[in-house]
């Protein structure tokens, strides 16, 4: 019976002419050994059609180590500029003289990214901004797996009626809870760093919740 099931399963894949997904195999990898890139973007605003990316900051995270040589920060030359957001990110239009074009910056970014798993805070925003930019420049959009610290953080909160949960936890909330310095808040790189440390602390908490069993990538993606 067991054999039969196996067989029929196999033949189903044959029938559909698709290969069994190998992607899930990587999910059984240990979190420690996986290469993550933690990114943040500073943009001219929140409209992903009209606003533009001014800066991308990326740190890599592997085995609990953030390597500064292996990080990436790029300011991008943009025609579109919105004065009102400058108060937040502090990037002036002509701050850096020889900023690369969007196309160059994105190409460098994609090369740096590789097939790593992307982590960000409210990932959907950053990914959408980047994907729109990639489309505009005729580049392929991102297919990397993604994780969101805003979402993962909620999983670390205790289940108690006494705790009023917020719908959205800002990066500031996480920094406060986890005692991470907010000095470089609202720079792409600074936020990426805060996100990376927060991610490590979240993983620690989730590990504790799971107990002694091995903690793998599935544990991060299953939610």
């Amino acid at each position: 019976m067991k054999d039969f099931l196996k067989k029929s399963k196999a033949s189903l894949f044959d029938f559909l002419k698709i290969k069994e997904k190998t992607i899930d195999k990587t999910l059984s990898n240990r979190v420690d050994s996986t290469r993550f890139v933690v990114l943040d973007t500073e943009t001219t605003g929140f409209d992903h059609e009209n606003d533009r990316i001014l800066c991308i900051g990326v740190v890599t995270l592997q085995n609990g180590v953030i390597s500064i040589p292996d990080s990436f920060e790029i300011y991008i030359h943009q025609e579109h500029y919105d004065k009102s957001s400058a108060q937040i990110h502090g990037i002036l239009k002509d701050w850096v003289m020889d900023k690369p074009s969007e196309l160059e910056a994105l190409q460098q970014f994609l090369t740096f990214l590789g097939d790593a798993i992307i982590i960000a805070h409210h990932t959907i925003f950053d990914i959408t901004m980047i994907n729109r930019a990639l489309e505009r420049n005729g580049l392929p959009i991102l297919t990397n797996k993604t994780l969101d610290t805003a979402y993962l953080y909620k999983k670390t909160l205790i289940m108690s009626n006494l705790l009023e949960r917020k719908d959205h936890y800002a990066l500031d909330d996480l920094a406060d809870k986890f005692d991470i310095s907010k000095k470089d808040r609202h720079t792409a790189m600074g936020d990426a760093y805060i996100t990376a440390i927060a991610f490590l602390k979240i993983v620690k908490k989730l590990k504790d919740l799971k107990g002694k069993k091995e903690f793998t990538l599935i544990d991060l993606f299953k939610y």
Binding site: V59, I66, I68, F72, E73, D184, A188, M189, G190
Partner: peptide, 10 residues
């Protein structure tokens, strides 16, 4: 590479 974090470390 020189960036925001390396400044902070320095």
């Amino acid at each position: 590479m020189k960036n925001t974090i390396s400044h902070r470390v320095a």
